[in-house]
């Protein structure tokens, strides 16, 4: 089955992104496809390149990058939600006159159309959040 995942909560504060990650791994192990992960609401914070979690804890941002690379998952961060919360890629940082950019490589910034497209393209679109 072809899955799209919507992640609506930020890292470490909430289990949503961890559940989504475990789901993605399990689904892929069973031969399913994860087509796209869309980060929305506070979920955009999962894409930050600047998080430094303690070494004995999981690194959520990097775990997703690895999983996405290995399985060709498209990881999309909502641009409007990201801008509100201070997450910018290099292009946006320059356009908005900000000093730096903080979206980790492997994630791409795009619009909500990518979420709708996942709803249309996928057999299932699963929401992780409150």
């Amino acid at each position: 089955m072809k899955y799209g995942l919507l992640i609506n909560e930020g890292p470490y504060q909430h289990q949503a992104v961890d559940s989504a990650y475990q789901f993605a791994k399990a689904a892929i192990a069973k031969g399913h496809e994860v087509f796209r992960v869309f980060f929305y609401h506070d979920g955009v914070n999962n894409a930050t390149d600047f998080a430094v979690p303690p070494q004995d804890d999981r690194n959520i941002t990097e775990n997703w990058i690895k999983l996405a690379e290995e399985n060709n998952i498209d990881m999309v961060v909502c641009i409007a939600a990201a801008q509100r919360r201070g997450l910018l890629d290099a292009n946006e940082a320059e356009r908005q006159g900000k000093r730096g950019d903080n979206i980790a490589p492997g994630y791409r910034i795009s619009g909500l159309g990518q979420l709708v497209e996942a709803g249309i393209e996928c057999d299932r679109l699963l929401t992780f959040g409150d």
Partner: peptide, 30 residues
Amino acid sequence: FMFVNRKSPYGTVYALESLEVVLITAAFDQ
């Protein structure tokens, strides 16, 4: 596409941001 709105409008940002998805979904003629 069905959008289920369960939260009050200003206590959290969910309502506002959900409305944005609704408009985009409509723009996709769904």
